[in-house]
């Protein structure tokens, strides 16, 4: 289903290294990715979504080729079916929570949006602007915006940061619900090992600049 082989030189303040990514996943799965800060989790997500250009390699999702350096193929971000929850839980600041979700997926009805908001226990905040939300509320809202988009690949970068236990539970519930109802592959980057172990089919660690995910069966 997903085949990825990528190389990317990463320059940081402290050291330079070459991130190597190999992924082979044959079925929809929830995959955890962990590793120390700065090892390249976000870079992997950015390369997969198309926001950062890999140095070379390939990304194939089903029969769809998203990137192939040999063939000079680089599919536009907008044409990749890939949603991405950024670490800072970005929302559109000029839209209410309701409008944010509507903008993400214009085919949703008002009732659909309300259902999603109820799932996350933030229905009463639907007319609020992002600036009026707490860190946890914002995280849940941003997660909704990304999950309702129904992409083939869903990338969640630190979705559990700034969440209390209740919020964490509703986020877990939502991820499981979306996974059950879709055929998406969900990648979750997090430092929260306990939650990853509980939620994911398997957890992989980036070590020695290598992320090697083999889930073929």
């Amino acid at each position: 289903m997903i085949r990825i082989g990528l190389l990317k030189k990463i320059k940081t303040k402290y050291h330079d290294f070459e991130l190597k990514v190999n992924v082979a996943v044959d079925k929809p799965k929830i995959i955890g990715i962990t590793g120390d800060s700065g090892v390249g989790k976000t870079t992997f997500f950015r390369m997969l979504s198309g926001l950062t250009m890999p140095d070379n390699g390939y990304i194939n999702v089903g029969d769809d080729h998203w990137f192939d350096s040999d063939q000079k193929l680089d599919k536009k971000v907008t044409e990749r079916s890939c949603s991405y929850l950024f670490q800072d839980a970005t929302l559109f600041s000029h839209m209410t929570l309701f409008e944010n979700i509507r903008f993400s997926n214009t085919t949703l009805t008002d009732a659909d949006i309300s259902d999603w908001l109820i799932t996350m226990d933030i229905l009463k905040l639907k007319d609020h602007y992002p600036s009026a939300l707490s860190g946890g509320q914002r995280k849940r809202a941003a997660l909704l915006v990304n999950l309702v988009n129904k992409a083939k690949v869903i990338l969640l970068d630190e979705p559990f940061v700034a969440l209390d236990e209740t919020s964490k539970d509703s986020v877990l519930k939502l991820i499981k619900k979306v996974f059950k109802e879709s055929s998406s592959v969900i990648f979750i980057a997090s430092h929260d090992h306990e939650v990853l172990e509980d939620l994911c089919d398997q957890v992989f660690r980036i070590e020695n600049s290598l992320l090697d995910i083999q889930m073929s069966c």
Binding site: T78, F86, T90, S93, H94, F103, V145, N146, N149
Partner: peptide, 27 residues
């Protein structure tokens, strides 16, 4: 205009025109 909002619009599959009209102009 916050760059991450533009990137979010991109990953949500919004065209440059929609992003301009719905994100850049209102901001």
């Amino acid at each position: 205009v916050d760059h991450s909002m533009l990137e979010l619009a991109e990953v949500l599959g919004k065209s440059k025109w929609i992003t301009f009209r719905k994100v850049i102009l209102p901001n």
